[in-house]
């Protein structure tokens, strides 16, 4: 039986790529549930506009498209207010699970984050056996970890029950990115490319979005009880990366070079000095009420070693990154230049 796919957050960064890949492989039942309208509407895709935390709206969508597979990518990312984040990421996921069970949906693929196991310490080559930290590094990580636990617990053993899988994607970037890329490219526009915090030996996983989207398709296929890899996938979580961790600062430098800029010289600020400055800035920010330019959080984030072992995904999902970092960077900057061009035209 062919699946009918419903992609939550299907107009978002990752969701768009999931939808595109589903269409490209010839699926003809693809629907999107999102709070924002589609940027490039496609007549092959049914779009439901609604709020993921609103059970009635979501259940209408599920019923209407007779969904058998939900790919749940909708989430609020770092920087959103705490309450909103928990509401969308945790309550929203609860709602998705409840609706799925109520309507006999068979498959649920959840987009998690590699940071669910991050506790602020270096993590080199962690695999899925790593425990959740007692204290999450930030609220986003906490909300994703809580949601992931719900999703994995919702996996049912019975043949016709709901089967779930969680994909912990790491450091997403790609065309349409409104988070990582604008941050890095903003530094370029502000002329802050010559600064480096730490010695840049810390490896970091970045994942080109189409690769992450591909993993979602592979995982969805393997949730079918008839699939030979089913037992190794249902109820499990997997790290998904490009398989090529890079020293952290190399990544923005690649982006900048692709955009035609090479920093003339690089000033290295040792980690401890950056920490000291961050503390002072946080104090000033507390006094003045303005957000700090550099926070301890940022310093930890850019100097931590954080990369994952994706052997489990390679073995159980047959996942192999299809696009290299090089291709990812090229495509991303091409998109960014075009978007930048149209933005300046508008002004």
């Amino acid at each position: 039986m062919l699946d009918s796919y419903l992609v939550t957050g299907g107009n978002g960064l990752l969701g768009q790529h999931v939808v595109r890949q589903l269409l490209e492989r010839g699926e003809n039942a693809v629907a999107v549930f999102d709070i924002v309208p589609a940027p490039h509407p496609d007549e092959r895709v049914k779009v439901y506009t609604g709020d993921i935390t609103n059970g009635t709206q979501f259940s209408q969508a599920v019923q209407d498209c007779r969904a058998t597979c939900i790919i749940h990518t909708a989430a609020l990312i770092q920087g959103a207010p705490r309450d909103a984040m928990f509401c969308v990421n945790v309550t929203g996921t609860e709602c998705v699970i409840a609706t799925a069970k109520a309507h006999g949906v068979r498959k649920l693929v959840f987009t998690s984050s590699a940071s669910v196991v991050f506790d602020g310490h270096d993590q080199a080559g962690v695999d899925e056996s790593a425990p959740y930290p007692k204290v999450p590094f930030d609220e986003y990580n906490g909300s994703k970890a809580a949601a992931e636990r719900l999703v994995l617990a919702a996996n049912e053993d019975k043949e016709d029950g709901l089967k779930t899988v969680s994909l912990r994607v790491a450091g997403l970037f790609g065309p349409g990115d409104r988070h990582a890329i604008p941050g890095f490219m903003g530094a370029l526009q502000a002329g802050r490319t010559g600064m480096q915090i730490g010695d840049n030996t810390n490896l970091f996983d970045f994942t080109y979005i189409p690769n992450a989207a591909l993993a979602h398709l592979l995982a969805a296929d393997r949730l079918a009880p008839t699939h030979p890899a089913h037992a190794r996938v249902a109820g499990k979580s997997f790290f998904i990366t490009n398989g090529h961790p890079l020293p952290f600062w190399d990544f923005p430098r690649m982006l900048w070079r692709e955009a035609g800029h090479v920093p003339a010289r690089i000033t290295v600020l040792p980690r401890w000095a950056a920490m000291l400055i961050a503390v002072l800035m946080e104090v000033w920010s507390w006094l003045s009420g303005r957000p700090p330019v550099l926070s301890r959080f940022r310093v930890v984030y850019v100097t931590a070693t954080r990369w994952c072992d994706i052997r489990a995904a390679r073995e159980a999902l047959d996942y192999e990154p299809r696009w290299t970092m090089q291709e990812g960077v090229r495509e991303t900057i091409k998109w960014w230049k075009e978007a930048e061009g149209s933005r300046t035209k508008e002004q």
Partner: peptide, 28 residues
């Protein structure tokens, strides 16, 4: 080798990836 690589190098990313692979191997 990685610390001697400069971003202007057309092979910059490949060097980064190749050195990262050695790191991955050691860590594994």
């Amino acid at each position: 080798i990685h610390s001697k690589a400069v971003p202007g190098d057309p092979s910059f990313l490949q060097i980064s990836v190749a050195c990262g692979k050695i790191e991955q191997w050691c860590e594994h």
